[in-house]
Design a protein around this nucleic acid. Structure first.
Length: 930
RNA sequence: GCGGCUGUGGCGUAAUUGGUAGCCGCGCCAGACUUAGGAUCUGGUGACGCAAGUCGUGGGGGUUCGAGUCCCUUCAGCCGCACCA
């Protein structure tokens, strides 16, 4: 009987839906397992063969866990808000909700063909009001909480208010924008607006003046992770720095917990390292500098407190408020001009152009340890957003300060014995201190670092700064608060209205606040976001609602929690559901989310943990990054200014333009000329210069994308080979974590394997044939080898070697002509996670009335794997010379005796003394002779 | 610049974790069947050699009876961060 995959796959996909096979309910009697894929953004291009890679890998794991008796949650949904749908809406006027729904339908259709075990009854869409109600709800919660550094968790803002009432800011240790100081009396004297302004300084979701990445082309701000190399991640438009009032999330308050939490999760080292880099913890000290001839002081941050004796100038960031305070009248024009020029530069220009620039402010600062005066400069190499926006410059031991000093002819004073700073600075944190202080500049009772190792000197200086009250020990983070406003239409509206210019949250009972209709998806004529066009966009009392919407990561930050209890309209998640599912046991997705989604989700989850909504501090226990499937593009070469195309091998003789050609009309790099002529009307009368009668295309590995015509859809593969072949082939390509170009060569091998597997139990007529005879030792060994291999492989995500193991087993069984029920049945269960359709069909043929999903994973009996004899390589002084067979249970003494007595051994020993005999179990006997 | 990862046949990859390098598949070669087909089956396939054998895991060095695997060094490629003080 033929392997009719089309019929089989349709039959079982229908059956699964009809029976609700993959519907899962909380069952306290069973252990839970939560498998999750990063949900897709439903783009207009549909699914390509790269998307399912991770879904297949996690589906295999989910099915495997289920066969091992776990209650498995394996949901799927859509990250449905996003820029492409909105850009499309702007161009065509088509409502993004319509295009998004259409794209989702297409995705669903494609996904269904691959045979996933998703529980679709739990589907979520971020743009669905029932869903984003809880995104808005979480935002309200964040608005009404602040981060208490002493308790190290989020607490209600009411607690803060109580404290202000009683003690003012005295004793407050909270994450905030700026350090405020007021008394209880002053607090009580404040009006409503002023109090709101104070509280805004502490809220976890707050409205703040921030330097943002403004993208004029997109008309919106972007988060740091949405800007790559100074241009927008989507579209590649230039990005400039601008100060704007924006909603922000105080992610930075969680920096330390985001860092330490990494130690508790099972993620790859590289991903953890990427997050550590992004969080960017650095230990150092803050040190106060007095401004000469004034009572002003300012603070700098340094990790190299030991170098304070080498400070020869100070530098302020151009955006720093200190600039205006410190600039002298003489220098004001020059400084203003410099600051203005800096503002106009885009992020990209600042990155690409690293010329040393700067201006002297005219002021001098006093070194707190030596009292000497150093000039204060302004330069854009100092960042406003990090530390205090001001630095002490030590050109001898910092390469950036060095370049600046060289350029402007400032003093470079080395502090480490024997270091050479004539060509470049000495940045390493090693060596012995000298010149600290310089001879003749010692102070009574002052700090002396001379002779100390750098590390000791840092510690001693920090201690000194702390004791003398010159500053404090401080930990700084690179991680900044997340900017949470977008000037876009297609996103979650904020549950916020304004009264007297101050924002207030809607009541939870008013949620969801649904996205209003607008006539156009563009900003208003007055430059307000698109929601400014919505009619009646106010509260019932007439207060105006917020016009910004939330960014893409808002909806994706807690979706994994919603899957646990997706239809609950009383809570984000019920206590019972959350306590049962806890958190995600296995999360599969791409590395591109390392510094975006995976930081925001962890932050969001930790906040919900703090307020008692979820029971786990970390959302994703184990994370696997599937590699990207790249496209393999094909090119044709058009001779300039003609409609003639020259084959790749001959193109060097012509002046040609390479053009992408649809890979679907190219086979093994040979162009289907008729299909090419039909592809586009301008090629209908194209002419060709052929080699050997064929048109050979060029190729390159590139990102799979519509514009490069290298997209291969899974549907086409499913149509031609079936879903089971696609699933197994994608796994067979190589390790899941590895990126690789899509290459259809080789899929035949996998398809052939499934046909052979099918043939094992099908007879020549139209039916199945199973033997009830007892299996032989050889058959049992073949099966149990497979059980062992596949079980450990799935646990380790080595699916490619599993597929290889299946092939070996089926080849062996085919050779043995084995169709025995007791062998085929467990084999069917083993393959079910990989090729569920064929497994179901055979499971039914074996006479089962339940689906294979309810089967039991077979257990390996090691007893069948025993070898009777073991082959040893006999080597002399490390050189293998001949082989000998021994019984598997032979003792080392027996082996040694036999080897030494063997006639072949004599010519290698040749009467010399035997130093030792090393016997490695099951492998090698090495005889070492003198 | 800092940090991480990778390097094995013509290709994708594997190697019991320090034990006969190249499993499985593609491709290729030969053969079988055949109403020549992009079907199926069988055998072969790291290099050199008629052979016994020798050489082989980016290069060089080391540890070890034994190294793809461990250590040092170097080269190449990929990824992350990057005027972060």
């Amino acid at each position: 009987m033929e392997y009719n995959f089309r019929e089989i796959e349709q039959k079982w996909q229908k059956r699964w839906v009809a029976d609700g096979t993959y519907k899962v309910i909380e069952d306290k009697g069973k252990k839970k397992f939560y498998v999750l894929n990063m949900f897709p953004y439903p783009s207009g291009a549909g699914l390509h063969v790269g998307h399912p890679l991770g879904y297949i890998a996690s589906d295999i794991y989910a099915r495997y866990k289920r066969l091992n008796g776990y209650n498995v949650l394996n949901p799927m949904g859509y990250d449905a808000y996003g820029l492409p749908a909105e850009q499309y809406a702007i161009q065509t006027g088509q409502h993004p909700a319509i295009t998004t729904a259409r794209n989702i339908a297409r995705y669903r259709e494609q996904l269904d063909k691959i045979g996933f075990s998703f529980d679709w009854s739990r589907e979520v869409r971020t743009c669905d009001p029932h869903y984003y109600k809880w995104t808005q709800w979480a935002f309200i919660k964040m608005f009404h909480h602040y981060y208490d550094n002493a308790e190290d968790k989020a607490l209600p803002v009411e607690r803060l208010v109580e404290h202000f009432e009683a003690h003012g800011t005295d004793g407050i240790n909270a994450a905030c924008g700026e350090e405020l100081h007021f008394t209880a009396d002053e607090w009580r004297g404040m009006g409503e607006v002023e109090r709101q302004r104070v509280l805004m300084n502490y809220r976890i979701a707050y409205l703040g003046d921030t330097v943002v990445n403004w993208c004029p082309a997109l008309g919106t701000v972007l988060a740091n992770d949405e800007v790559v190399d100074g241009v927008s991640e989507r579209g590649g438009h230039p990005v400039v720095q601008r100060v704007m009032k924006q909603w922000c999330l105080r992610v930075s308050a969680y920096a330390e917990r985001l860092l330490t939490g990494l130690e508790t999760v099972d993620w790859t080292d590289s991903l953890k390292e990427t997050q550590r880099n992004w969080i960017g913890r650095s230990e150092g000290a803050e040190l106060q500098f007095k401004v000469k001839g004034s009572d002003k002081t300012f603070t700098i941050f340094t990790t190299r407190a030991d170098t304070v004796f080498g400070v020869t100038f100070m530098v302020l960031a151009p955006e720093s408020e200190l600039v205006a305070e410190l600039v002298t009248d003489d220098q004001r024009d020059a400084v203003n001009a410099y600051v203005e020029a800096t503002k106009k530069r885009t992020e990209r220009e600042r990155i690409s152009d690293r010329r040393v620039t700067g201006v002297f402010t005219g002021s001098y600062a006093e070194n707190p340890l030596t009292g000497e005066s150093v000039p204060v400069w302004v330069s854009d190499y100092v960042l406003a957003g990090y530390g205090t926006g001001a630095i002490m410059a030590v050109p001898a031991h910092d390469s950036r300060d060095y370049a600046f000093a060289k350029h402007f002819g400032l003093e470079i004073r080395p502090l480490i014995e024997g270091c050479d700073v004539s060509e470049s600075s000495f940045d390493a944190k090693e060596g012995r201190m000298t010149n600290s202080p310089r001879a003749g500049f010692e102070r009574e009772g002052g700090l002396v670092l001379n002779g100390l190792e750098v590390k000791e000197a840092i510690a001693k200086t920090k201690q000194y700064i702390k004791e003398k009250g010159l500053g404090r020990i401080k930990v700084n983070y690179r991680l900044r608060d997340a900017i949470f406003s977008r000037q876009r239409y297609w996103g979650e509206p904020f549950p916020i209205y304004y009264k007297d210019g101050m924002p207030y949250t809607l009541d939870e009972s008013q949620l969801p606040l649904e996205l209003p209709e607008v006539d156009k998806f563009l900003p208003t004529e007055t430059g307000e976001p698109p929601l400014g066009r919505a009619k009646g966009w106010t509260t019932a009392e007439g207060y105006p609602l917020e016009l910004n919407t939330m960014p893409g990561f808002a909806g994706s930050s807690a979706y994994y929690i919603r899957y646990m209890d997706p239809h609950n309209d009383k809570a984000l998640v019920s206590k019972e559901a959350d306590e049962y599912w806890e958190n995600v046991d296995l999360y599969v997705g791409g590395t591109e989310h390392a510094t975006g989604h995976l930081i925001y989700s962890r932050f969001w989850n930790k906040f919900l943990y703090d307020i008692g909504v979820v029971v786990k501090d970390e959302p994703f226990k184990k994370l696997v990054n599937q590699g990207m499937i790249q496209g393999r593009s094909n090119f044709v070469y058009r001779i300039k200014d003609t409609n003639t195309f020259v084959s790749a091998g001959l193109k060097s003789g012509y002046d040609v333009t390479p053009l992408h050609v649809d890979v679907n009309i190219v086979s093994n790099d040979i162009l289907d000329i008729d299909a090419f002529k039909a592809w586009r009307h301008e090629y209908a009368d194209a002419e060709f210069v052929l080699e050997d009668g064929k048109y050979v295309c060029g190729w390159a590995v590139e990102k799979m994308s519509k514009s490069m015509y290298n997209v291969v859809n899974p549907d086409m593969i499913v149509e031609k080979y079936g879903a089971d072949t696609l699933r197994m082939y994608e796994m067979f390509l190589g390790p899941v974590e590895q990126s690789k170009p899509w290459d259809t060569n080789g899929i035949d091998g996998v398809h052939r394997f499934l046909k052979k597997f099918w043939a094992l139990s099908s007879d020549k007529g139209g039916g199945f044939a199973f033997s009830d005879a007892e299996p032989t030792a050889g058959e049992l060994k073949s099966l149990h080898k497979l059980i062992k291999k596949v079980t450990t492989d799935i646990e380790n995500f080595s699916y490619n070697t599993s597929v290889a193991a299946f092939m070996i087993c089926v080849n062996e069984l085919t050779a043995l002509k084995c169709n025995k029920r007791t062998i085929i049945e467990p084999l069917v269960v083993l393959i079910a996670p990989f090729a569920p359709h064929i497994a179901e069909e055979l499971w039914e043929a074996l006479g089962h009335t339940t689906t294979v999903c309810d089967a039991q994973w077979p257990v390996c009996n090691e007893g069948y794997l025993k070898e009777d004899t073991v082959n040893y390589a006999i080597s002399f002084n490390g050189k293998a010379r001949f082989n000998l067979q021994f019984a598997a249970d032979a003792t080392n003494e027996e082996i040694e005796r036999t080897v030494l007595a063997h006639e072949n051994s004599q010519k290698y020993i040749g009467g010399k003394a035997i130093k030792k005999v090393i016997i490695v179990p099951r492998k090698i006997v090495n005889v070492v002779v003198a």
